[in-house]
Amino acid sequence: MALTDAIAAHFNYWIVIILMMTGFYLVIAHPNKINKLIGLTIFQTSVFILYISFAYVRGATAPIIVEGWDDYVNPLPHVLILTAIVVGIATTAVGLALVVRIHRAFGTIDEDEIQPLLTDP
């Protein structure tokens, strides 16, 4: 019983870490730059889920005040993540613009093909 409780208490965090590591692996191992950026967004979203998990309170409701209800989840992580999501797409857009420029310069977005072009021009 104690074991299942311990698993249930941290299950969210573990899935978040698995997602985070999946994104991390894509970023460091995949040669295609667009796949790298997708890995980065997976990583970002896992962090968002982590924050919203911190905000969650069992038996509480969304932080919109109504009469006759006292338990609300923590609004502060929601605020932070709300802005982080929009900033996330802004960084993704800049990254994609860089990828398009790299493609214009080298004709490819595959890292393994760009590397030899850089060493012997």
Binding site: F48, I52, S53, A55, A60, A62, I64, H78, I81, I85
Partner: peptide
């Protein structure tokens, strides 16, 4: 599901 409608709308 985790009671964050604002964040869900944005995502």
């Amino acid at each position: 599901a985790m009671n964050a409608p604002d964040v869900a709308l944005t995502e």
